[in-house]
């Protein structure tokens, strides 16, 4: 179960998307998410779907991995789908002359929501699969830099984010280790009612918190002893560059984004 979470898992291969400036990818993703939600009509949906598929093909990451990233949200899709089906007012659907309580409008809305959610996850996964966490936070830091003039701690935010991302796999591993150790002492995480199960988590959460604090402390000491003192005057080993490929991507995307908006508001 814990291993199903693929968000934030970089897939190190060589593809046009991997070579791109993280800033381009982040901005494209943000506007892509907006496009997914304003797209309307069959043509609009086809356009965003094709664009997402195009991005996935361009990333050269096996589709199997994208599919696995979708696994945790099937339930949400199903849940919202059922709610939409039954709760949207409109023309009732009749099956063998019996009212089913579902509506045609609900069916269409459920379909739309499912497509949107799937595209949302796929597009976000495309970013995290092709961008290493370090260049991702580099990109975010650079994008936020203009706001530091009005007091936004861009560097600190980016540093916090990269540390958080860095420690996700470590903490997952730690959780599995502790859970095994407690199971070896007869702990039972899988049976009983909700209250019993919640109580059973205590032997797992306490050691996990302790180890997280210990790691945080160790990391702080390690950073200080290497003279870390915030972002002022820090330079990078591999500075990010806005390249020709980024310019082309930006141009193509602007045209695409314009078209989606036009489709929505003109028709």
């Amino acid at each position: 179960m814990l291993k199903d979470i693929t968000l934030g898992q970089y897939f190190p291969i060589d593809s046009p998307l991997h070579k791109m400036d993280p800033r381009t990818k982040i901005l494209v993703l943000i506007f892509m998410l907006v496009a997914i939600f304003i797209a309307d009509g069959i043509v609009g949906y086809l356009a965003v779907t094709f664009f997402t598929v195009f991005i996935i093909l361009l990333s050269k990451v096996p589709f199997k991995l994208y599919f696995r990233g979708l696994k945790p949200i099937w339930f949400i899709i199903l849940f919202t789908g059922v709610l939409n089906l039954f709760l949207t007012p409109g023309t009732k659907i009749y099956l063998w002359e019996h009212s089913t309580g579902m509506t045609w409008e609900g069916l269409i809305l459920a379909g739309k929501m499912a497509i949107r959610l799937v595209l949302l996850i796929l597009a976000s996964s495309a970013l995290t699969y092709t961008t290493s966490p370090i260049s991702l936070t580099d990109g975010i830091e650079k994008l936020l830099l203009p706001f530091s003039k009005i007091g936004l701690p861009a560097h600190e935010l980016a540093m916090m984010m990269s540390i958080a991302i860095r420690f996700i796999p470590t903490l997952i591993e730690e959780t599995e280790k502790i859970s095994k150790a407690q199971q070896a002492r007869g702990a039972d995480f899988e049976s009983g009612n909700i209250i019993k199960r919640a109580k059973a988590l205590v032997p797992m959460l306490v050691p996990l918190f302790i180890s997280a604090f210990r790691r945080a402390d160790d990391l702080a000491v390690a950073m200080e002893s290497r003279c870390y003192r915030g972002g002022n005057g820090r330079t990078r080993l591999n500075p990010i560059h806005f390249k020709k490929v980024d310019l082309w991507t930006a141009m193509v995307f602007v045209i695409f984004f314009g078209a989606v908006i036009a489709l929505r508001f003109v028709s």
């Binding site: 280790k177 502790i178 150790a181 050691p207 180890s211």
Partner: peptide, 15 residues
Amino acid sequence: QEVGLVFQYPEHQIF
């Protein structure tokens, strides 16, 4: 219960 397993760094499981 029959096979007691003490993991590496077992002190990390104390709660």
